[in-house]
Design a protein around this nucleic acid. Structure first.
Lengths: 148, 148
DNA sequence: TGTGCACCCTGTAGCAACTACAGGGTCAAG
DNA sequence: CTTGACCCTGTAGTTGCTACAGGGTGCACA
């Protein structure tokens, strides 16, 4: 018990996490509260280091906090089948694929809008035009409504 | 002036925006405050409709609120060159491309992690393994630190 | 005339996942 | 014995909304 004894700053450095983020994870019960020193400093063990590394890796892979919480809960039940783990990862993958598709559609649209820029004045700007509703009525602009 | 006279609900329907969102845009000065009726209801003109449509379209294309603000400001200066408009769109496109790259890397990683799932117990789960730090020490789990 | 309902108003709090203070305490070096 | 780096708590800010609570307005229908 209580091996290593890392300060919060040490743990932060070891896991490339900000000190505030570690305290935040503790507040939301993602990382268990460590013991304290006489001076009320947090004192972390190797177990904390492992758990925080897991959290960071999962977060880097885009898992949400709640997904990470579920994964951590599952990883503690070593002899249960890992279907639930698989399901979480699969769901996340599906979400990532969906985002990629959406962004690619977006990129195509932005590409096409940008390709039309003739570098004239704002009045002729195809980018503004593309963003505007049903054919900008001649006379100008987006029709800034003045609060008269 | 004050043509059309749409209620906030009408404007919401016309632009597929929630009423609360319209009020929010007014609060952050993205959409100018409209005139009020005798009963203190907001009364919108066609100009408001145009501007809100522009905002929605830009937001759908993933421009941030601040970018939309800039685009609106620029679109009012009809006789200035449209380089600044072009720059905003280009920057946004670069950002979108970056996100796509990141997500594709992520997808590859998730794909590879998932392909290793042998559907055994959590103890043998390659997904958990892949998320864990430097070779999980035999004995188990992510080493949940108990607050003893 | 009432009364019911859909709509509108303001103001505040909540979401994710942190980040950034303010205003203090602790600890080791010089 | 002071300086500076670190730590503590608690609260507020970020982005872009969304969701109430607790009221007021306006119009149709009986």
């Amino acid at each position: 018990m209580a091996c290593e004894n890392l300060s919060i700053g040490d743990l932060a450095k070891a896991t490339s996490t900000k000190v505030e983020t570690i305290r935040y994870y503790e507040r939301i019960s993602l990382l268990p509260a460590p013991e304290r020193t006489a001076g009320n400093y947090r004192s972390y063990s190797a177990a904390h280091l492992g758990r925080l590394s897991f959290i960071r890796r999962a977060r880097d892979l885009g898992f949400s906090i709640e997904q990470v919480r579920d994964l951590l809960g599952l990883s503690d039940q070593r002899d249960r089948p890992c279907e639930a783990v698989d399901a979480i990862a699969r769901e996340h993958l599906a979400e990532v694929k969906r985002k990629i598709r959406d962004l690619q559609a977006l990129r195509r649209e932005l590409d096409s809008i940008l390709s039309q820029c003739s570098r004239g004045t704002v009045a002729e700007c195809q980018i503004i035009e593309a963003l505007s509703p049903t054919a900008t009525p001649r006379g100008g602009g987006i029709r800034t409504p003045e609060t008269e």
